[in-house]
């Protein structure tokens, strides 16, 4: 049996498969359900200072097996109300990564302090939501702000800090470099790819917000390229995310340089059972390849290749 354990910096994980932020994170019980099904850790919904309804529906457009477009608009109950959900998630020992979003370094710092008090194992900074004014990628696309926000959070809390960066930039890896300059412990990449849907009968955008973010199998090759490029530019661990739904999808991200991966959209078809299915599948596939552990794969595709 291949060893599924991995680590992201100092954080040891029983499986490389994590639940991505925004999936199932509104309820602590749902987060716990993903952990109990075999996830190595679960990332919370992105939490802000105040309750936020998000955008009115339609917030989703489905593309069958290849993708999902969304503009939820960062709905969340606010940090104060969310404490109860985190407590419910952590009952029974679930490893929870707390995701936060803010308008500036000072708001990120305040949220980081509040999130740290809940006992999360690490923080993930949402510097990459592609569809919220003054938030997410609107600030996370600026390397100076990425450094400033990451530094403010690192100085405030003793927890590992993961910077989740956007692929919607000319040079996403430069954003990872900026996060490293601010003291980030890991990079999460990618968030959704900016996209939209237009209906011909109605001659109008489908999503209430117009622009949204694409996830699912269609974005996997994009995520792989971003992780590949980041791996060549930074020394800290990478958490890969984007379109993973099969064993080989996950292994491809590890080979590109990820130390762990996150799963989101695939949950719509696979449910919580996807974690146990993929854990077993990865173990079987590694045995088949005669590779003893997940960690042996991290960045292995870079060996003997020129920088791309």
């Amino acid at each position: 049996m291949a060893d599924l354990r991995t680590r992201v910096g100092a954080l040891e994980l029983r499986s490389p498969l994590l639940l991505a932020s925004g999936i199932w994170g509104e309820s602590g019980v749902s987060l716990r359900r993903a952990y109990d099904a075999g996830a190595g850790a679960v990332v919370s919904k992105s939490i802000g200072s105040e309750p936020r309804d998000g955008y009115p529906n339609p917030t989703i457009e489905e593309y069958g097996s290849w993708g999902l477009l969304n503009a939820m608009g960062l709905p969340n109950p606010g940090m104060v109300a969310y404490r109860g959900e985190l407590a419910a998630a952590r009952q029974g020992g679930a490893v929870v990564i707390g995701s936060i979003f803010g308008h500036d370094a000072s708001e990120f710092r305040t949220l980081a302090l509040a999130m740290a008090e809940t006992g999360v194992a690490a923080l993930e900074l949402n510097l990459s939501c592609p569809h919220a004014e003054g938030l997410g990628s609107e600030i996370g696309g600026d390397p100076t702000l990425v450094t400033e926000i990451t530094r403010a959070v690192k100085e405030a809390v003793p927890l590992p800090v993961w910077a989740k960066i956007t692929p919607n930039a000319a040079d996403p890896a430069a954003l990872a470099v900026a996060a490293v300059a601010g003291g980030a412990d890991a990079i999460t990449a990618i968030n959704t790819v900016r996209a939209m849907a237009i209906d011909v009968d109605l001659q109008r955008p489908v999503l209430t917000h117009g622009l949204g973010g694409l996830s699912g199998p269609a974005v996997k090759p994009i995520g792989l390229a971003v992780v590949w490029q980041i791996y060549e530019r930074v020394q800290i661990p990478i958490v890969g995310v984007g379109g993973i739904s099969t064993v080989d999808d996950a292994l491809q991200y590890l080979l590109a340089g990820a130390s762990a991966v996150q799963i989101g959209t695939a949950i719509t078809h696979g449910g919580a059972g996807l974690f146990s299915t993929l854990n077993a599948g990865i173990s079987h596939r590694l045995d088949e390849l005669k590779i003893p552990s997940v960690t042996a794969l991290i960045g292995a595709a870079h060996r003997g290749t020129q920088s791309v």
Binding site: S30, L68, N70
Partner: peptide, 20 residues
């Protein structure tokens, strides 16, 4: 309800999603 495809958690009820 928001997504109706079992990922956004808006319709969480205990360990269930009403949509799926």
């Amino acid at each position: 309800m928001k997504c109706a495809v079992g990922i956004c958690d808006a319709c969480a009820l205990g360990p269930f999603h009403v949509c799926q």
